[in-house]
Computed example of a mutant assay.
Amino acid sequence: MERVTLRIPKQQIEEVERMVETGEYPNRSEAIRSAVREMLSEQEPSQERPSEKRKRRTWARA
């Protein structure tokens, strides 16, 4: 596994911490890995039609 450093807004980290505290995830790293897996599964290009490509989520800078 490779280590990645990233910046996340404080409010989002606090939400992740709450998920860890309630037992939904064992730690922050696993919560973030789960979010990445979900994002990647939503982006399955082999099953996308051309019209769906235009609807892809765009990410705002924080």
Rank of each mutant, 00 (worst) to 15 (best):
S41M: 13
V36Y: 07
Q43S: 11
Q11I: 00
A35S: 13
S41K: 09
R3A: 08
R3W: 02
N27V: 10
E44F: 03
E30W: 09
S51I: 12
E30N: 04
R7F: 14
E15T: 15
W59Y: 09
R18P: 02
K53W: 15
M1Y: 01
Q11D: 10
A60W: 01
E15N: 12
Q43F: 07
R18A: 13
Q43Y: 02
S34V: 03
R49L: 08
E52M: 05
E30H: 06
I8F: 01
Q43P: 00
E52F: 08
Q12R: 12
E14K: 11
R7Q: 07
Q12L: 15
V4H: 02
I8G: 09
A62D: 02
I13E: 07
M1E: 07
Q11S: 09
L40I: 12
E48A: 03
A31H: 05
E42W: 04
S46M: 05
M19A: 13
E42M: 13
W59T: 13
A35K: 10
A35R: 11
P9W: 02
P26A: 12
A31S: 08
S34E: 13
E15W: 13
S29E: 05
I8P: 05
E44C: 04
R28L: 05
Q12C: 14
R33A: 02
V36G: 03
R3P: 14
R57Q: 06
I8M: 14
P45Y: 00
E52N: 06
R18L: 05
S34D: 12
V16W: 06
R54H: 01
Q12K: 13
V36N: 07
E2D: 09
M1T: 06
T58K: 12
I13H: 07
T58F: 10
R56L: 01
Q47L: 05
R18T: 15
R54W: 12
W59C: 11
S41E: 14
T22Q: 11
S34A: 14
L40M: 11
R57T: 01
T58N: 03
A62L: 03
R57P: 00
T58G: 05
G23E: 02
Q47K: 10
E17W: 09
R37N: 04
E38S: 09
I13S: 02
Y25P: 01
E2T: 09
S51K: 02
V20C: 08
M19K: 15
R7H: 10
M19N: 14
P50L: 01
Y25S: 00
V36W: 07
R54I: 12
P9C: 03
P45V: 08
R37L: 07
E44Q: 07
L40G: 00
R28K: 15
M1G: 13
A62I: 03
V36L: 11
P26V: 11
G23N: 06
R7S: 08
E42D: 05
P9H: 11
S46V: 02
E30V: 12
E17I: 10
P45Q: 00
R49D: 03
M1K: 11
Q11N: 06
W59D: 09
M39D: 02
Y25A: 00
S29M: 04
M39C: 05
